[in-house]
Amino acid sequence: MILYTPMQLELVFEGLDKDPPRCFEQITHRGTSLLVEKASFGRYRIIRVLSTDPAVFLDPALQPDQLVRPE
């Protein structure tokens, strides 16, 4: 991987070695598979949408970093 950026790499990668490893899991929400991370109050934060339907990626409720509550 090559980062091509004028930003100082120390700033970009700051905290990469300190943060605890993030724990992702896969859930199905409204018929779509999502790779999510646990957030507070029983919700999940979307990391990645796992779908082959391109229209799903335009759904405003299924954008990365949105919070979802499993059904």
Binding site: S51, P54, A55, F57, L58, P64
Partner: peptide, 10 residues
Amino acid sequence: EHVIPQLVAL
């Protein structure tokens, strides 16, 4: 990985 399928949808 999100922008690419969005472009396909568009």
